[in-house]
Design a protein around this nucleic acid. Sequence first.
DNA 1: GTCTCCCGGTAGTATATACAGGCGAGGCGG
DNA 2: CCGCCTCGCCTGTATATACTACCGGGAGAC
Lengths: 245, 245
Amino acid sequence: MPLPDAASPLYERVKGYILGRIGSGEWIAEHKLPSENDLVQQLGVSRMTVHRALRELTSAGVLVRVQGVGTFVAATRPQSALMEVRDIAEEIRARGHRHSSAVLALEKTRPGRDLAREFEAAGLRTVFRSLIVHRENGEPVQVEERHVNPGMAPAYLEQDFERTTPYDYLQRCAPVTEVEHVITAVRPGAEIGSLLGIAPDAPCLLLRRRTWSGTAVVTVNRLWYPGERYSLGGRYRVGSRGPAS
Amino acid sequence: MPLPDAASPLYERVKGYILGRIGSGEWIAEHKLPSENDLVQQLGVSRMTVHRALRELTSAGVLVRVQGVGTFVAATRPQSALMEVRDIAEEIRARGHRHSSAVLALEKTRPGRDLAREFEAAGLRTVFRSLIVHRENGEPVQVEERHVNPGMAPAYLEQDFERTTPYDYLQRCAPVTEVEHVITAVRPGAEIGSLLGIAPDAPCLLLRRRTWSGTAVVTVNRLWYPGERYSLGGRYRVGSRGPAS
DNA sequence: GTCTCCCGGTAGTATATACAGGCGAGGCGG
DNA sequence: CCGCCTCGCCTGTATATACTACCGGGAGAC
C-alpha cells in the first residue's frame, strides 16, 4: 500500500506521498508526474481527492500544471517567505526536502553598544547568542545568528536546537507581535562564507530581523543566505487582504 | 443576481462576491458569514463550489472557519511597507532628495522562452522593454529593466520616462492587483555594474518583480540595487493568525 | 512535402450525494 | 435547579459523474 494509513485526511496523505517521492529524489525537477487518472489507479482514491492534493501542492509552488499536458515538479530554487516569520525547518519540509542544522554556538554574552541600542535597552547586561547553520538536503542555506533578550526567554540556553528550532521555542514563550526586516547584499567574509560553503566575496543576502513581543525587543537576528542558492520573496494581493493563494 | 456572470470560474465569482462584501464594509471583522447551505440558496450554486471558495479564502487568511460553529471574517492583516509597490521617484523625494533618471532603452522586442513563461503567455509575440537608471542626488541607486505586456499597456513606448515613471503610466492603464517579489544577491556584471557605478563583482541586490492586473501578467521587472548603498526593509505588526499552510 | 483537422489524453470546473466530526442549545430526568 | 444527553446545525472529507478547455501528434487532404 503506497499510502500510510495515518489518521490524517486522504488528500493530505496523497500530498505526503508526492512530497515523499520528491524528497527522496525519485522525482526531480521537471519530472512529469503520473496523470490524475494514473494516480487514481495507483493510490485507490477518487480523482477529486487526487486533484485536490495536486492543486494544493501547485498553489504551494511545489508542482506546475499545464492543462492538456501534465503535472511537473517545479524547478524553483529555495525561497523564504518574506512577510511571514516562519520556521525555516518547516519551510524546507514543506518543499519536500530534508532539514538539518548544526549549533555552532549557544552562550551568554555581553552586548556591545550597537547591540544594546538595537534592543532598545541601554542597560542590558547580558544577552543570549546562538549561531546555527541550517541545511537543506545537506546543503547550507542559512547561517542564523540570534541575540535573544534573556528576560523574555530565560531557558533559551537549555534548548536543544538540533531537535527543535529557536523559532519554535521563542514562539511559545514570547509570541511575535511586530517585526522589522532590512535586507542588504554583502560579501560574507571568510567566516560566514566557509559556513555557507561559498567564497568570501560571493554575493550574499543579509537579512537583519528584529522581533518584538509587546513593546519589548525579543530578538535581534542576522541571517545570511547564499545569494546564488537562495532567495527571499512572496506574492501578495494588493488592495484586498492576504497573500495570493 | 448577486454573482457577476463574467467568464471566470464559478468559485472565483463566489470568492469575488464575498471579497466584495468585505471590501464594501458590509461584512467587517468577526462578522459571521451565512452558512454554506445559506450561500448555496442565495447564490444558486452547489455546496462544493461554495466550499471551495470559502476554503481558499480561509487559506489566504481572509476568513476563519470553526467546525460546528460557522465562518467568520478574519481580523485584518497589516500590510507591509517593504512589499508595497511604490514609485521610486516618489520614495526618493519623500526622503527630501533629488531624483533623476536616464532612459537607456525603450523598445519593442521578442520574448525568449523563459520570459514568455514568466508572462504566463506562451504565444506572446512581442513585449516592450525599457532600461532606466534612477539616481538619488546624482548617485545611481537602481537599474530598472522592465518587460511590459503590450496588450495591457499599448502606448508604453510613447511615454517620456524622464518626466514621468513607468510606475505612473502603468498604474493608470492597468492597476496592480497582485505582486510577486523575489530577492537574490548577485554580482552585477560589467554592464549593470558600470551603470550603478560599482565593481562588476560587488554584491548587489536583484529584485525580480512581477505584477498582475486581474489574471494577466502586466510586467516582469528586474531591479538592481548596489548592495552597499541601498537596502530594502520594513516594519510591521504581525496578525494573530498563523500563516496559511 | 506540407498543411489542416481531428482525436485522445490531460487538467479544470461543477454538481449531487453521502457520511464524519465538532459544537451548542434545548429537553429531559434526577 | 442542575447536569447529562440528544438532536440539529455547521464545517470537513470523500466519491462518482459529467462536461469543458487545452495541447500535441498523427492521419488525411491538398
